[in-house]
């Protein structure tokens, strides 16, 4: 006896109602934060003009002055160049963190004794205040580009290690047995089962690490201040010179960089695994 499976759904109607729903979703996700933003700008103006007297107004220059300072040609070029350098350090540091973190986790997933030997160090790395190590890193690696990347890696590494390991180990036991029944080797299991299954967790880790990489790039730069200035150096220069409008502009650029990198990796993750994995839980 044969049975016919149900016909594929009518794609057209489905797609259209999905679009409508998506559009609605979009407004409801963007509107509340936007209102909060406008509210904050209001509070900002209120503090600047109602709370601070003229002599202390430099503590919080009004938003339009910050915008003006940002678009002042000299400052703009300065900030953009710094942004470029910091972005480069963050991305290079992140790339290293991803590669090292994934390899580290894969090594640990292959044998319990490797995990027992190496995992404590991942945790230690997470627990020591990296800031305390920054001067030392400067001593060892110089106060320029490589040292900044290293700080970045150290700050961004842990989420990659722990997320990848979690992903590799969360493979469904039934799926594992499916492979065992065919006498699949370790490499086959890693590449055809564990690694694909871990991808959602890896991308989740990547998103967190991306944000941390920006922090690392700015912190390293803030401390070392040698070589070409990044956003960190710029922050300390503007602070020292009491150029508060420029300082605020730089802070916003740094924040936007963090958000942009976070969003970029969220997007990449969705592109790669969103088809089969439902990220909507986050």
């Amino acid at each position: 006896m044969t049975t016919t499976p149900p016909a594929p759904p009518k794609v057209r109607t489905l797609a259209r109602s999905a679009t409508v729903r998506k559009a609605k979703n979009r407004t409801s996700t963007w509107l509340p934060p936007l209102l909060v933003f406008l509210g904050l700008i209001g509070v900002w103006y209120a503090i600047t003009f109602l709370v601070l007297d003229e002599k202390r107004r430099f503590l919080m220059p009004p938003p339009h002055e910050v915008v003006a300072a940002f678009f002042d040609p000299a400052t703009f070029v300065e900030i953009m160049q710094a942004l470029g350098r910091t972005t480069l350090v963050a991305l290079v540091g992140l790339a290293f963190a991803i590669v090292i973190g994934v390899l580290w986790a894969v090594a640990m997933s292959q044998a319990k004794w490797v995990e027992r030997s190496l995992y404590p160090y991942a945790v230690v790395l997470q627990c020591i205040p990296i800031l305390a190590l920054v001067p030392l890193i400067g001593f060892w690696f110089g106060f320029e580009y490589p040292a900044r990347v290293i700080v970045c890696i150290m700050i961004a590494l842990f989420p990659m290690v722990s997320n990848t390991l979690f992903g590799l180990q969360s493979v469904d036991p039934g799926q594992r047995e499916l492979f065992q029944l065919q006498r699949a080797g370790r490499w086959t299991i890693l590449t055809k089962l564990e690694f694909p299954a871990a991808l959602p967790a890896i991308f989740a880790g990547m998103r967190i690490s991306a944000g941390l990489a920006v922090v690392g790039a700015i912190v390293g730069d803030f401390f070392f201040r040698r070589g070409e200035p990044g956003l960190g150096s710029l922050l300390s220069t503007y602070t020292a010179r009491l150029r508060s409008a420029e300082l605020f502009a730089t802070i916003f650029v740094a924040a936007l960089l963090g958000v942009a990198i976070f969003a970029l990796f969220g997007w990449i993750g969705k592109r790669v695994v969103g088809k089969w994995y439902d990220f909507s839980a986050n």
Binding site: L178, Q182, P196
Partner: peptide
Amino acid sequence: TLLPWRDVQSNVELLAEL
């Protein structure tokens, strides 16, 4: 116990592939 990243065809191919 299907692999969620593989479509029906490639899930069915899995054992032969292994």
